[in-house]
Amino acid sequence: MLHFELVTPERLVRSEDVYMVTVPGTEGDFGVLEGHAPLMSTIRDGVLLVHKTAGATPEAITIRGGFAEVNASGLTVLAEQAV
């Protein structure tokens, strides 16, 4: 499972283990699965899709401004706003 964290300046919105997350990067959307290569990318305003399990209907979270970081411990999305 992929450890996924969504943080805004106001609070820690999500911290959970999921199957896959699709992130709206500045240079295009990218999906992050477990074991993804280390990556840092800025994000554009858009919809973040969280797939809890393979094949499940994704949950959509609208985010604004920020960046995403993938490292050995998982995916961290720092967004200015998340709804």
């Binding site: 990067g25 500045t26 240079e27 290569a37 280390p38 990556l39 840092m40 990318s41 800025t42 960046f67 490292n71 050995a72």
Partner: peptide
């Protein structure tokens, strides 16, 4: 980030830093 693996930057370091 120094887990041995090189981190990929998108777009690049300067652009991310500027933002």
């Amino acid at each position: 980030n120094d887990g041995g693996a090189a981190v990929e930057y998108e777009p690049d370091e300067e652009a991310i830093l500027a933002e």
